[in-house]
Design a protein around this nucleic acid. Structure first.
Length: 375
DNA sequence: TTCTGTTTATATGCCA
DNA sequence: TGGCATATAAACAGAA
């Protein structure tokens, strides 16, 4: 049997125009697109078959002159591991933490592949959250009641995908609590937070800039509580909110809105242990540190911004979650029947439509370049 | 009842 | 080739 090998390459958006294989692109976490390059010794290009099949599912797109401007991701599996998908979802959220359902929603919204077989991959997501030490659970505050906890990244997890490979990390982030019985293999979420504390208290105020977080130790029965101070680089400049309207916690702002770098707030997230609690209760607060010291940011405040990458803050995993690249227009913004949809559709496809909506059942993930086709 | 979270088991593929 | 990282399935418990 011939061996099919695949590799992935990041290509800038500007190189995509006229690319016949646009169906095989996925947005990457850094604003470019991921393209799967299939090398099949038998010239049996399954990839192209997939592309053509996908295109034929939407005649208006297939025959339109706007095709070369469409940014389309295949309904085949995106080249990201569950861990990287979860990480993107968390880093893309205003508070840098997500509920399980928000993670589900993030993934489904971005990747058509994950709109099917939900039971399968959602089980895997839950497993990944529980199993991997890089994810820690942050219980809800009383102001935000609901089901399930928030999930955040362990501050020590760093940039787990700095090698650019989103399928497999070079090394798994693991917590080892040497103070515990070496025969004990189970690491609970309690252990994660406890260990986080120990690690941090032993580390110097490392590389990262930013803020000082107070994290309490989660105590095993019989032990006495203690507090530890840790440094954490969760300082993130925020520019523009990205998530579209049906995200409860990530409401949309106009896609053209920009914020000057100077006015971008620095967001600091703190985790606080609640010593009165008998279980692993860690609360969080988010501040804007640019505004005369610390100011608590309400969720409404946070909604004005969108996390973007901070190259200077290296200790935390700060990947951009792939907002629509400059010069592109996100079709998702129009799916709720906004009045400019008809003219937009006409401009981009050369066809008229009487509908105020785009059927996004299978084609939810299109990007259209704003550039004039003749230019 | 459904969702969330934990754990175990197994399979697959990559890499040193 | 063994170890590791990841994917998938499934059982189970607890919370909303």
């Amino acid at each position: 049997m011939d061996r099919i090998t695949s590799s992935y390459a990041l290509i800038p958006t500007t190189e995509l125009d006229g690319n016949p294989n646009i169906a095989d692109l996925w947005p990457s976490p850094n604003g470019t697109y991921m393209q799967q390059v299939t090398n099949n010794n038998n010239n049996n290009n399954n990839n192209n078959n997939t592309i053509q099949q996908t295109l034929s599912n939407n005649n208006s797109i297939q025959s339109s002159p706007g095709l070369s401007y469409a940014r389309r991701y295949a309904a085949s599996k995106p080249p990201y591991s569950y861990i990287s998908l979860i990480t993107h979802a968390i880093n893309g959220s205003p508070d840098r933490m997500c509920t399980l359902s928000q993670i589900y929603q993030y993934i489904q919204d971005r990747y058509a592949y994950y709109r099917q077989n939900q039971q399968r991959w959602q089980n895997s997501i839950r497993h990944s959250l529980s199993f991997n030490d890089c994810f820690v659970k942050v219980p809800r505050s009383t102001e935000r009641p609901g089901k399930g906890s928030f999930w955040a990244l362990h501050p020590d997890s760093g940039n787990m995908f700095e090698n650019g490979c989103y399928l497999r990390r070079q090394k798994r982030f693991k917590i080892r609590d040497k103070t515990k019985d070496p025969n004990k293999s189970k690491i609970t979420n309690k252990d994660k937070m406890s260990n986080l504390n120990l690690n941090k208290s032993h580390s110097s105020s490392s590389s990262s800039t930013i803020s000082e977080n107070t994290i309490g130790r989660l105590d095993s029965p019989g032990s006495s509580p203690r507090q530890a101070t840790v440094s954490e680089s969760l300082s993130v400049p925020l520019t523009q909110q990205y998530y579209h309207q049906h995200h409860q916690h990530y409401p949309q702002v106009p896609s053209q809105t920009t914020y000057s770098t100077e006015s971008v707030p620095i967001i600091k997230t703190e985790y606080h242990h609640n010593p009165t609690s008998s279980s692993s209760i860690y609360t969080h607060q988010t501040y804007d540190t640019n505004n005369n010291g610390l100011q608590y940011l309400t969720s409404e405040h946070n909604q004005q911004y969108f996390h973007t990458i901070d190259q200077s803050a290296s200790a935390s995993f700060l990947h951009q979650i792939a907002p629509p690249p400059p010069g592109t227009f996100r079709i998702d913004n129009l799916i709720n029947g906004q009045p400019d949809f008809k003219s937009f559709y006409s401009t981009m496809t050369g066809h008229e439509t009487t509908s105020n909506y785009l059927d996004t059942t299978n084609t939810n993930n299109y990007y259209f370049n704003n550039t004039n086709p003749s230019s």
